[in-house]
Amino acid sequence: MGRDGYLGDLEQMLLLAALRLGDDAYGTRIMEELRSAVGRRVSRGSVYVTLDRMEEKGWIESSMSGPRPERGGRPRRVVRVTAEGVAELRKSREALLTLWDGLEDSLETP
């Protein structure tokens, strides 16, 4: 959520996962991606609440797919990262890179 305008860590991960998944970015797949790519298990509620909040801030947009039989006739909420969302990601990334700068050598794995 970024106390001083930077992204929180769950927010970053969700945005990145959504970008990686493209048209396939909906709740179940996003959670799977976090689990398989970085081994992070997040509670379902946190994911939905965070997505709702990011949509309110305009970092993502979501659209509903048509009803699907394997989902009991219910739609998918597919999210897409907006230009603002990407800008936020970049800002956070640069801040982190700046802070990392010069530390790489001293923090080299022993």
Partner: peptide, 16 residues
């Protein structure tokens, strides 16, 4: 709302 429908759909899909 539709967001809730989508959440229930996620659960349904994973349940399946």
């Amino acid at each position: 709302g539709s967001r809730t429908e989508a959440m229930l759909g996620d659960l349904e899909e994973e349940f399946a």
